[in-house]
């Protein structure tokens, strides 16, 4: 770097060779590098790299719930997902009018793309065919108390993935819900 190559040029005078020794300006950086890497190692181990993400959940205010119930949504625009124990979902669609002879078919599905996602997409297509707009679909998510936190996150996530515009987390209070919970052997309490 700062060194000059003073190879003899041949015809120089001999007395010029004697010079005061130049001190090198170079510093040995090895210890500094050592220290640098030591600190890097420390910070790498102490750091949390993957910043967790958050999923925003908005629940209707408790006072508002009654107001929202006033214009009831047509049941044929809805689908109900009951999240149960052991990563099971009980999905059903109830007709607009219910009487004692009504038969409701109940699907037991899981959280895989072939289960929940297929169900939602099928339902979206049905609503599209009947009402002309798949965004009319309203999904009611009813977690049973014994379902896990992962289930609710997965279900909400599936709403985002399938672009379901309207959904809500509700308590399983319907008579139908109690029947299903009873049949599945899962308490609503």
């Amino acid at each position: 770097m700062a060194e000059m190559n003073v190879s003899g040029g041949g015809g120089h005078k001999k007395d010029k060779k004697v010079r005061g020794k130049k001190m090198s300006t170079r510093v040995d950086l090895t210890p500094m590098v050592d220290l640098g890497f030591l600190l890097i190692t420390f910070f790498m181990l102490a750091t949390t790299f993957n910043k967790p993400k958050t999923m925003e959940v908005n629940k209707p205010a408790k006072d508002d719930i009654k107001k929202e119930e006033e214009p009831p949504i047509k049941m044929s625009k809805t689908a109900t997902l009951m999240l149960g124990k052991g990563d099971k979902i009980y999905a059903y669609v109830s007709p607009d009018e219910i009487d004692e002879t009504t038969q409701i078919s109940l699907d037991s599905i899981d959280y895989s793309p072939n289960g929940l996602r297929k169900f939602i997409q099928r339902r979206q297509n049905e609503v599209q065919a009947q009402w002309g707009n798949k965004d009319d679909l309203f999904i009611m998510i009813k977690p049973l108390p014994s379902s896990s936190f992962k289930n609710i996150v997965d279900a909400l996530d599936e709403m985002t993935i399938n672009d379901v515009k309207r959904y809500a987390i509700l308590a399983p209070n319907d008579p139908i819900d109690s029947l299903i919970a009873l049949r599945a052997g899962q308490s609503r309490k």
Partner: peptide, 11 residues
């Protein structure tokens, strides 16, 4: 009266 909250998940 807290109706909005964040659930922490990993990506």
């Amino acid at each position: 009266k807290v109706n909005k909250f964040n659930l922490i998940t990993s990506a």
